[in-house]
Structures are given as C-alpha cells and as structure tokens.
Design a protein around this nucleic acid. Structure first.
Lengths: 256, 256
DNA sequence: TCCTTTGTCTCTATATTAGAACCATTTTGT
DNA sequence: ACAAAATGGTTCTAATATAGAGACAAAGGA
C-alpha cells in the first residue's frame, strides 16, 4: 500500500453502498472514528471530480454519475452480452430458475451477468454484488479451484456467518472444497441466503486458472436432491459452451 | 481542491476510458508527463482496492470490477427503469427514433437512460457518456436553463468543435441559448455527430431548476424541418409525463 | 548477444496532510 | 421561543507522507 492518502480515501468511498447511500461529513467521521476535517477534505475532493455529489438540501454526499461512466466501460470491456448472456438466458428458460455468472475478484466473487427466471418466486441479486468466496455455491465453486495458499489466506482472514448454515469451521470448509474439486460442481442450500439453493460449476481461463463460475439459484423447495443430477447436466452443457467461448477468444480476463 | 494526492490520483483515473482502456506504468507516466514512480504508486493503490486490475501477462492496468458495483448502485439510486424508461420506450416506438435522457453533472451532460429505436439505422450512445453542455440538442437544452453565471463560466472555459457545425462563437451561442429558452425546446443537426439530428426538451426539479433533458436523435434525413412540429408534440407529451413523475416524488436528484 | 524497456523498490528533501480548535448556520429538544 | 447541540466548512502548524531521481532485475527486441 503505497499511497496512504489515496488508500484512506478509497476506504471512505466503501462506506457508500446500497444500504448507506448517503453520508454527512460528521456522520461518516463518527462512523469511521476519524476527524471530520479529514472526511470533509476527502469527500469534497471526490465531489470536485464527480465521483460524489452533495445534496444541496441535506448537504449529505452521495455517489455521483461518474460511476455510471466507469461501470459502463467495465461492462463493455467484459463483453458478455453478445455471446454469454444468450446462453445464460436460454439456460434460465430451460430450467426455469435464475442464472448467474460470478467473477473472481480478489477474495470476493462479483456478479457480472444475470439471467433472471420468469417464475414469480425467484432468487434475485443485482449486478456488481460482492460476496466472500467462502459462502454459497457460486463462490465456493471458485474458491475450490484456487491455489492452496489463497484458500488458507481466505480462511485465516476469518469467516462471517451469513446464515446459521454458513460453513465456518475451517476443517469442514477444507472437506467441502475438496469435495467440490473432486466432483466438479457445488450444490448448497441456505448458506448465503435462507432457503435458497445454489448449483454452480467452474469456468477457467486459457491457463487453466479459475476465473468464474456459472450458477443457478432459486427457492429450496424447487430443487430437491433427486432433481440435482438432471439439472446439473443441463447446467454443465451451457457451461461448456461458455468455456469454449472463453478458450476460443483466449479470454482476456484473469483471476485476482 | 483540498487533497492534492487524491486529486492527482483521480486525474490519473480519467485516462482510463473506452479508447484507452489499459495503460502500462511508464506509458501513462509519459502521456501525463509525470514521474513513473508516482504513477506506479497511484495505480498499485487503486489496484489493491479493486478499482484497477493488473493484467498478469501484459502487466498493464485496466479498470476493475469495483466500478461495476458502484455503477449499479448509482443506477438503482436514480430509479429510472420502473417508470421513466417505459415512457421513453413507448416514445421511441411511436416516433421510431432513439430516445435519450441526459442528466446535468457539473459542466457536462451524462446519458443516464436510453431507449433505442428498432430501426436498422439509428443513432447510438452508451450509458454514462459525457458531453460538454455547449454541444448538441440534449446538452444545449440543459445549458439554456442554467443561471447566467454558469453559462458564462462554460463559454469562457473554451469551446471545442466536435464537427464543423458546432457553435463556437460566444455571440452565436448566446443567441442560440436565448432562442431555446424562449421556445422551450432545441433542434439541432450535426453539432455533436455528423448528419445526426437532435430534438430536446428540458426537465426540472421541484425548485424549477434544470436537471435533465429528454431528447430524440437519429439520422438527419429522417427529420426534415417540416416534420419537427408534430414530432415535438409527441416528445413534449412524453416529457410532461416524466416531469409529473419528478414532481410527484419531489425527485431527489438535483443539479450540479 | 547487447541494448532498451518494463514494473518495482529505496532513498531523503520537500510539500502535503492530520487533527485540534474555531466559526457561522441549522437543527433539535424543551 | 429559546438555548443547546450538531452541522458543514475553514484555518493553522506540527508531524508525516509524498515526489522524484535513481537503481534494480526481468523481459523483449534487434
């Protein structure tokens, strides 16, 4: 970490999320336990570049339109809409559940593409959502294929329970990851979100490194154990198509 | 501008755009005429937060997935998809041209919502695109309603010609803005993009301040002068619906 | 092969930032 | 209606982080 000022500033930015979309200067300073002068300088500098915007009535700061621009650039750069999304869409229509593409980014999985089920009851996540790699089928599928030192790093960093079912014991985690690697897929229920199942398979780059996972998810009652094998087959079929696309274009995305 | 380090860093970030999506350390240092040590520190700090990502093969830096997250938050916060987009969509179907919602952000207009025409030949812009307020129907419609001191500021900052038709003479600009304000709409051809017409109307917040514009755009040949009045009527009708929505929910977005 | 260019790292003089205290408004509680 | 508390913004100087040159090994090209 070379630049402390920038480092602090980006840390401040992380406090702006879906749950807390706007912050007052002193409010955020208190939350972060930092002098309000510092926060003020950071927020106003971000504002002068359009990354934050100050509500003239409440004087609070919110995320600015600049992020729309950069978000779009990243989206276009990944170029998933043309080929990958249609595959996901038809998969979601066939199995009648939502389909997600989760990308590896540091120690988290990021939802980069979504094909929603047309069912009235469905599992929904929004684009760009970040989840620790140790929780849920979509992320554990990725984690299982990481180099061991990375896995250790993640486990040592501590596991936060999302639901009572989230695997938090390191020993259990190791067994689970090994199982996933052996069978080549991951099925889990209620780990990330209560009574939601997830079924995921891995995707690799041209160097055989894990870079993403393709996952279907929905309410638990629609996916009893015995239905998993046939669903898995369909999922794997779609996944192979995507994998071939990645290989063909020696997909320029990479891990970490 | 309080924090110089952060200020510089954000300036560096602006070099990552659609045309130049990836930069090497020394390459960018040369481009910005800055020591490569400085650039390295900035890029690597951004990387450690997921705002940039380094390609392990080329060692170059690119925009990271973190922007997907923030971009999505901003998008959801604006909440245009539910009510405003359908209006834009049906407008685009009725007139068979693309429809854009442009938001005021500092001295620029940002494209925040798009309803594309189904025609094979159509004008296309991507989400988050930024344009100076002095060029094109969508932006000039906004600029015309800004307080005079803001207008002066923009004009004094200098006008860059996008096409030979871009109005660059301050005198002409003043006359044009006054005309727009008087008639309540703006029609222009080829100012921003060659042989593309734009027809825009303004949108205000609850304090009667300009915050956005609704614009239709397409190839010049499909919009001869005599067709403007009838198209304008349809455009204004849709615009009124959106304006009522803004009023009703005392739309929490604001200018600058 | 050698020369160039790359990202990364180390060093210290120098410029920038942290943090307390202060101010003028606004908001809150009574 | 009033006082007390909280707000965003500003100023100051000691303390600290950064700029920028230079060096390095690794990689690439000629």
């Amino acid at each position: 970490m070379a630049l402390k000022t920038l480092d602090n500033s980006l840390e401040v930015l992380k406090y702006f999320n879906k749950r807390n979309p706007s912050w007052g200067v002193r409010e955020l300073a208190k939350e972060m336990n930092i002098s309000h002068s510092i926060i003020y300088r950071i927020l106003s500098t971000f504002e002068s570049h359009g990354f934050l915007i100050q509500n003239p009535d409440t004087k609070k700061y919110e995320l600015g339109l600049r992020f729309l621009e950069y978000g779009q650039i990243v989206k276009e750069k990944m170029n998933l809409s043309d080929f990958v999304f249609p595959i996901m869409k038809s998969l979601s229509e066939e199995i009648e559940e939502s389909v997600f593409l989760t990308w590896l980014d540091g120690a988290e999985g990021v939802t980069v593409e979504i094909a929603e089920s047309s069912q009235t009851i469905k599992f929904t996540v929004t684009m760009g959502t970040r989840t620790p790699l140790y929780v849920g089928a979509s992320c554990k599928t990725i984690m299982a294929y990481l180099p061991e030192e990375k896995q250790i790093e993640i486990i040592n960093k501590g596991i936060q329970k999302f639901t009572p079912i989230t695997i938090s014991d390191p020993e259990d985690m190791w067994l689970d990851l090994e199982k996933i690697r052996k069978q080549g897929w991951c099925f889990s229920i209620g780990e990330y979100s209560h009574s939601v199942f997830g079924l995921g398979v891995p995707l690799f780059n041209s160097k055989e490194e894990i870079i993403a996972s393709l996952t279907i998810a929905g309410p638990e009652y629609r996916m009893p154990e015995e239905k998993v094998p046939e669903t898995l087959k369909i999922l794997q079929h779609a996944s192979e198509k995507i994998q071939r696309y990645f290989d063909q274009y020696s997909y320029r995305y990479y891990k970490e």
